[in-house]
């Protein structure tokens, strides 16, 4: 392979055309998953009867069934919607379940006394939730959320199999032109690695910063 073809593969095909799609997939699914996870997690954490049991079953389903199967099903069953929107829907549904469990665990980890103190001060429920409980939940949940986001980023590659033109799919297409798979897929691996690793590294810094913002400095768990 000539240098020019390397440049064309890496910059033009992967970085310029495919990476934006991957980033959109990540952003769209993350927003969707957080919405599902936050609402569901609060319901599960507050032990709302019936609804929390239903969501519990939903979580088990998402933990047991492969993303691949879910995406293929949505792709086969949905008559409307682009492959991008089907992928965002599928990834959001599955990742939302995991985020739900993280939020639920975080809420349950907040000491009961915090709720009781808020009650005795007659603080409204939503004030208690957003000013007191959720910041403390973030403290516990943030490392897990960052870990989950790494899994979500990697999970977007599966969208290639239903035709979504993200990094992996572009590589599959490029394979017909540049037959050296080690180079083509190697580049894709490197791009994913940089994204995930950067997130892990930045995430650690962010955790420290958030802990300081929430609990004041020199806080030790």
């Amino acid at each position: 392979m000539s240098l020019a073809s390397h440049k064309m593969l890496f910059f033009d095909t992967l970085i310029k055309s495919a990476l934006p799609v991957t980033l959109q997939l990540i952003l769209g699914s993350f927003v969707g998953a957080c919405l599902i996870g936050l609402i569901g997690g609060i319901i599960r954490g507050m032990k709302v009867p019936v609804l929390s049991q239903i969501l519990g079953v939903y979580v088990q389903l998402c933990r047991g069934i492969p993303d691949m199967l879910v995406l293929l099903f949505l792709y086969a069953a949905m008559t409307k919607g682009s492959t991008y929107s089907i992928a965002v829907l599928g990834i959001s549904l599955i990742q939302g379940a995991y985020i739900m469990e993280i939020i639920k665990g975080g809420i349950l980890s907040v000491d009961k006394g915090q709720w009781e103190a808020a009650k005795t001060l007659s603080l409204p429920f939503l004030t208690t939730l957003f000013r007191i409980v959720i910041p403390q939940v973030m403290l516990v949940a943030l490392p897990a959320l960052i870990g989950q986001l790494v899994l979500l980023i990697k999970g977007t590659s599966v969208a290639s199999t239903i035709g979504c033109l993200e990094l992996t799919k572009r590589a599959v297409i490029a394979m017909s032109g540049y037959s050296n798979a080690l180079i083509v897929y190697g580049y894709v691996l490197v791009i994913f690695f940089i994204m995930c690793h950067a997130l892990t590294v930045v995430g650690k810094k962010l955790e420290k910063y958030v802990v300081e913002r929430i609990m004041g400095d020199k806080y030790e768990r």
Binding site: Q114, A117, A118, L121, T127, R131, I132, L139, M215
Partner: peptide
């Protein structure tokens, strides 16, 4: 009724994520 009754707990139950200022002024 609660807003007229103050309660102090054995385990303090201060809001851990708020400064003393915010703990005292939020309500």
């Amino acid at each position: 009724v609660r807003s007229h009754i103050g309660m102090v707990f054995q385990s303090f139950n201060l809001f851990d994520n708020l400064t003393v200022r915010d703990n005292l002024t939020i309500a």
